[in-house]
Amino acid sequence: MSSTTRITVTLPSDQVAEIRKLTDNVSGYVAEAVARQIRHQLIGDDLRRYEEEHGGFSGEELAEAQSKIFGAVGSTKGADAA
């Protein structure tokens, strides 16, 4: 198990109420959301660096990536339904 650090954050009351409707583990929920945001930021940084080095993605490359992403999402949803 990874180490943890206790911190205090301030969130709008309505968000806290919604989180508590979804889970009893508010810390876990927030940690997962932060991890997702960090991944999003790192991927964005990588994409910007790639484009700076190699130029922008072509329409064909973007369409292929989109197809793979939505294909993977569709596969995951199908697996959940099984």
Rank of each mutant, 00 (worst) to 15 (best):
E18C: 02
I38K: 10
Y29L: 03
I38P: 01
I43L: 15
E32G: 06
A35W: 00
S13F: 05
L47G: 01
R20T: 11
Q41Y: 09
D45T: 05
L42Q: 15
D24K: 04
V16S: 14
V30E: 13
Q15A: 14
I19K: 03
A17L: 04
A33N: 09
D24R: 13
I19G: 11
R20P: 05
I19R: 03
R20F: 05
R39D: 12
D14S: 07
Q41R: 07
E18H: 03
E32R: 04
V30W: 05
D45C: 04
E32P: 00
I43Y: 15
S13Q: 14
V34E: 07
G28S: 06
S13D: 10
V30I: 15
R39C: 00
D14R: 06
R39W: 01
R39H: 06
A31W: 01
L47C: 12
V34F: 09
E18T: 02
N25W: 09
E18F: 09
L22F: 00
D46P: 00
I19W: 11
Y29M: 11
R36M: 07
L22W: 00
K21M: 15
R39Y: 13
D46C: 08
D45P: 01
R36C: 03
Y29R: 01
E18D: 13
A17Q: 11
E32N: 07
I43N: 07
V26P: 07
S13C: 01
V26F: 13
H40D: 11
L42M: 14
N25S: 05
G44H: 10
E32V: 00
E18G: 02
I19L: 10
E32F: 06
I19N: 10
V34K: 08
G44N: 11
E18P: 00
T23P: 00
T23H: 07
G28I: 03
S27G: 08
N25F: 10
R20M: 07
A31S: 08
A35Q: 03
E18M: 08
T23A: 08
V30G: 08
K21Y: 12
E18R: 08
H40Q: 12
V30M: 14
Q37T: 02
Q15L: 15
I38F: 06
T23Y: 05
D45E: 12
G28D: 14
V16F: 06
K21H: 15
A33P: 00
D46E: 15
N25K: 03
S13H: 06
Y29A: 10
Q37R: 11
Q15E: 15
L42T: 13
H40S: 05
D14I: 01
Q37H: 09
E18Q: 12
V26K: 01
Q15I: 12
